[in-house]
Every structure is written in structure tokens, then in C-alpha cells.
């Protein structure tokens, strides 16, 4: 057996960060600490993405998840827990139920993972510094290709049944458009939901801006 290479070291490092963060989320009794655990965990996931050759998605994970979603969560925590460090009370029953449910699930999932045999079980031997080792004839995953795929150009150029693709066959234009509309709806909906009445008897003057 050879020792771990660069990728393995990094993988284990970030796997530990990811799982440790997740454990912090579960075990901490303070919501803000849970949020910090989530940050660590998601950061580890982003780094795992980078290691797996998904650079764009990794950066996206950092930007949207860690930089956006979790900051949003932290904001929510601050707005809803004015007393610093609100403890989360969890009853013994809830823990019991959770463990009872989690144990079999873990067993099943581990079983599935162990029994998984890659069809082309050729594992990677990649140099940590050159990054992705792409086989001959295959383009690296650049954001440009991802973008093209989202605009409806198939990039894989193969159909599951082995046939050649034609225009619009396996692109992602429709989901892309759908998700854009979805985001717009969500934006308006969230703004509507979070809107708050100005406290009675308090009319912020026009030139003092709106707070909402």
C-alpha cells in the first residue's frame, strides 16, 4: 500500500472539517454555534467539490451557500434571538426518536455505500498540483461549458441510449428558465412575507428612507 497522496491528505482534512461541522450543528445547544458549524461544514463541502474537479460548483457553493444562505441564516438568528445565545432546549424523547430513526438509516446508507461498485472502477491517481487530470479527448469542465449547457447546448454529446444528440435534446434551457422565474417569485414572496408594519404612531419621514 502506498501512502496517501496530496489529494488524499486534502480529502481527509476537508472530510473531517465537513463532518466535524455537521456534528457541531447537531450537538451544540446554541443556535449561533450551530450556524458556525454549518459554515464549517459547507466550507468543507465546497473544498471537497474543488477536489473532485468541480471548480465552478465549488466556488458557487462558497458564494451562494456560505456567503449568501448562511449569512441570511445568521441574520435571521440575530433578528429572532435578541437575547444573545439563546439555548435550544431539546427533550430526551426527541433525542430518543431521532437516534432510533437515525441508526437504521445510517446502517442502510452505509450498506449501500459499501456495496457500491463503480462500473468503471478506475480510481484516480491525480497529482495534487496539476489538479484535474483529464483524459485525452475530453474538455475540462470550464464555466463556459456549464453555461453552454444551461443555454441548451448539449455538452456530453451522448444520449443514454448511445445515440447522437440533436438540438435541444439534452440541454438545460427549460429548467434554467424555470428556475429564473422561480427565483423572481421567491424574491417577491419573501419580500412580501418579511414586510413589517411600521410601528403605530411612527412615521419615518420621507427623506429618512425606508427601513424595510
Amino acid at each position: 500500500m502506498t501512502g496517501p497522496d496530496g489529494m488524499a491528505i486534502l480529502f481527509w482534512l476537508f472530510a473531517i472539517v465537513t463532518c466535524g461541522g455537521a456534528l457541531v450543528v447537531v450537538l451544540s445547544r446554541h443556535i449561533v454555534r450551530a450556524a458556525v458549524g454549518l459554515i464549517l461544514s459547507l466550507f468543507g463541502v465546497a473544498m471537497l467539490f474543488l477536489l473532485a474537479g468541480a471548480e465552478f460548483v465549488g466556488a458557487m457553493q462558497l458564494m451562494i451557500y456560505v456567503g449568501g444562505t448562511v449569512v441570511l441564516l445568521a441574520f435571521g438568528v440575530m433578528l429572532t434571538a435578541r437575547r444573545p445565545l439563546l439555548p435550544l432546549s431539546t427533550t430526551r424523547d426527541q433525542w430518543l426518536a431521532a437516534v432510533l430513526l437515525a441508526c437504521p438509516l445510517t446502517v442502510i446508507l452505509v450498506q449501500a455505500a459499501l456495496s457500491y461498485a463503480p462500473t468503471d472502477s478506475v480510481s484516480a491517481q491525480v497529482d495534487a498540483h496539476s489538479g484535474v487530470s483529464t483524459p485525452v479527448g475530453m474538455l475540462p469542465v470550464t464555466p463556459a461549458r456549464l453555461g453552454m449547457a444551461l443555454l441548451g447546448f448539449s455538452q456530453d454529446n451522448h444520449r443514454p441510449d448511445g445515440g447522437e444528440v440533436s438540438h435541444g435534446d439534452s440541454g438545460y434551457l427549460l429548467p434554467f428558465e424555470l428556475i429564473s422565474v422561480h427565483l423572481l417569485v421567491v424574491l417577491i414572496g419573501a419580500a412580501y412575507l418579511a414586510r413589517r408594519e411600521v410601528p403605530s404612531g411612527m412615521t419615518p419621514r420621507d427623506n429618512q428612507g425606508q427601513l424595510q
Binding site: 471548480e55 465552478f56 458557487m60 456560505v66 456567503g67 449569512v71
Partner: peptide, 29 residues
């Protein structure tokens, strides 16, 4: 490290700085 999404990566990572500040603000009590 030569990323092929370096610009995006930097923008993403710069955005993380904020969390430390939010946390510092919150944890100070």
C-alpha cells in the same frame, strides 16, 4: 494555485469575510 475559475473563486471567498464580522458582533454580547 492556478484555478480556471479564479475570478469567481476570489469573489466567493471575499464574501466569506463577512461571517467573521457578523459572528464577532454577535458573540460580543
Amino acid at each position: 494555485h492556478h484555478f480556471n475559475t479564479a475570478a469567481f473563486f476570489i469573489l466567493a471567498v471575499l464574501g466569506l469575510e463577512v461571517f467573521g464580522i457578523i459572528l464577532g458582533g454577535y458573540a460580543s454580547g
